[in-house]
Write a protein that binds this DNA or RNA. Sequence first.
DNA 1: GATGAATGAGCCTTCATTCAT
DNA 2: GATGAATGAAGGCTCATTCAT
Lengths: 216, 216, 216, 216
Amino acid sequence: MSAVLPSPRWQRRAEARPQELLEAALAVFVERGYAATRLDEVARRAGVAKATLYLYYANKLELFKAVVRHALIAGLDEAALGQVEMPEGSRARLSRLLRLFGQRVACSPLSGIPKLVMAEAGNFPEVARFYHDEVIRRGRDLVTGILRRGIETGEFRAIDVDHAWRAVIAPLLLAIIWKHSFQAFDPEPWDFERHLEAHLDLLFNGLAAAPDKTEG
Amino acid sequence: MSAVLPSPRWQRRAEARPQELLEAALAVFVERGYAATRLDEVARRAGVAKATLYLYYANKLELFKAVVRHALIAGLDEAALGQVEMPEGSRARLSRLLRLFGQRVACSPLSGIPKLVMAEAGNFPEVARFYHDEVIRRGRDLVTGILRRGIETGEFRAIDVDHAWRAVIAPLLLAIIWKHSFQAFDPEPWDFERHLEAHLDLLFNGLAAAPDKTEG
Amino acid sequence: MSAVLPSPRWQRRAEARPQELLEAALAVFVERGYAATRLDEVARRAGVAKATLYLYYANKLELFKAVVRHALIAGLDEAALGQVEMPEGSRARLSRLLRLFGQRVACSPLSGIPKLVMAEAGNFPEVARFYHDEVIRRGRDLVTGILRRGIETGEFRAIDVDHAWRAVIAPLLLAIIWKHSFQAFDPEPWDFERHLEAHLDLLFNGLAAAPDKTEG
Amino acid sequence: MSAVLPSPRWQRRAEARPQELLEAALAVFVERGYAATRLDEVARRAGVAKATLYLYYANKLELFKAVVRHALIAGLDEAALGQVEMPEGSRARLSRLLRLFGQRVACSPLSGIPKLVMAEAGNFPEVARFYHDEVIRRGRDLVTGILRRGIETGEFRAIDVDHAWRAVIAPLLLAIIWKHSFQAFDPEPWDFERHLEAHLDLLFNGLAAAPDKTEG
DNA sequence: GATGAATGAGCCTTCATTCAT
DNA sequence: GATGAATGAAGGCTCATTCAT
């Protein structure tokens, strides 16, 4: 029978389409940011006509929201991988966590997602809330968990965990921003490894339980 | 009666104008970001015609540069000058610098500028280059200068200054991002002071020249 | 009743559009010149939105080029082809070429294009270069080709072809200028035919291979 | 009496300012053409503020008219110098006239005026009429006078003087157009001398009274 | 369902012109 | 009279969105 039917000019891909559109959109949003993303380009990369986007998403904003939701779910699964417990010391555990994040996120195309969120969160509270509640909270819990355990075991000094966790994470996020925003203008090539080592060096010395140090 | 006086169509304010324009522009850039800032709106807020902007600044980019110079670079140069004059130790010096940045930038509306730049640098290479060359470089030089001096005097350990400076700054930039993107969704109120203290605590312990600490 | 039919907001005319746009553009360019032509007006005359122009032509310059190609270059190429096919003498050939140009260009609205180019070339180097490279070169090649052939066959004197070709063409261009600039103020009606005859008369006598004529 | 009356406005205009303004304006109009001339630039070259222009000329158009009037009067006086009669033959006379025009106008900055007029006449009938009546008519009379005399004396063939005069002048005008519009895009340097020689060669051969020549 | 074609609203920038001093 | 300062009206171009097929 099918031999009789004229082959349609396009194929019905209602199933696969949304996925493909989201992936193309993610790529462009990550590269360009929200405002600078042209739906023309998204469509081109997805291999469809621009109008086709509107069959699936009401407008640019809805597409953006769908992209972030979709991408963050993937990102969360990725993050979950890093959570397997190992019977190591707190220091090794923290080290492993940060290195893992470096490999899996900061040094991969995935880094586009936190970058995108940091860049656009201000304009899209929904996105910000989602990311805060689902991603950041988990990351924070991981870090504070390790810190607290390290303090209990005496490996770390008794620091203000609820505020210090950001200082632990900050250099990794800065690395992501640097890579996406300024790397191109820095004459020296970007060396994430040494950047991370410098941070860990400072961090572990800063965390280390030691005799006494007075305030500055 | 005043009703008789013909209200002039416009006022001549050559002296005050640049200031007023910069202030209006700062406000709009901070609220909307670079790309989304409409010169129409800047002009409206400054109470002038759009064309008047072009009497003082050649184009949008130049206006932005002027805003950044006025709002950030002036402060940085001031800070650099202040640095030389104080006969303090490196630790106090670094502490003072970071606290100053916290007060003057991170906790003020000015924080909108680094936020904006981080968000949109990817789309506006000229903006990114300018910020990198004019602002970041100044900040980096201040920090690395203090670190190097501290190492020379023996206050600090011999760390990898060229890579560690970002770790010193990162928590402040993260604070800015946090404030603009996620603060609203955090049940706990944002306490920059304690955040900074936690960072300084870690940092100075991490920097402190001390007996022996082995790698992790 | 026809009143019930919803009149479509626009019509889809992918086939006919380019032609229509070019015709509208030609008319406006001829009436107003290059700089003074508003794309708004071109669009209005073509019955489309301004943005529609950009579906077919990247910008004003490209639109202009397309107009010139459509209106002039096609004719020149046609003329060049015709040249090869005719078994006439060089004199008849030159005569035919100039008469053709007279009919097709000088005496038609198309004359607006050379006029416009001559008038505005100084301000739009790209326009000038395009016209020089695409139109003038073609015209020059046609003329010099005929002249050289005529000299070879002995029909014409051995003149300085590389400099004389402009003298062959000049009266035709002057005719165009006259028509567009001064015709209206000349009490005598403009008689292109006789003007051309006077030129050809002078020209062919000037070209004719003849006994001896001494210098002046 | 005049000492008592306040000096009328028009008297002030007869002083130095208008001259300077006109000269500056001439230079810019010649360089840029009418539409592309910026009053800003005219003012800058004249060393006055833009608003000052409006004290002397109601608007851009009036300034343009004044410039053309002023410049062409000077040009005509210049041209009149060449009219002194000499006891030469018609051929030498015509040769001298064209060479003189070449030197004094085509190869001098004055060429900007005919160019300007040819370019903008279509849009400014007043200018066109003025130029036609005052300049072109004189040029035509000079040329036709020489031609008629040459025919009478038997030096020239009996040609259609009333139509041929344009063919005599055309190459010179084309030279002016070429210089201003296309010279820059021609790889070969512009050689006015040879261009003129080629024209005169053709012209005098075409004019020469000679045995018999058949068909055109 | 899919898309090529079309558009309206808007933005940055320019410039002749006018006002206030 | 002279001018620095200001502006209104455009113009070229872009792009999210919608329609006709």
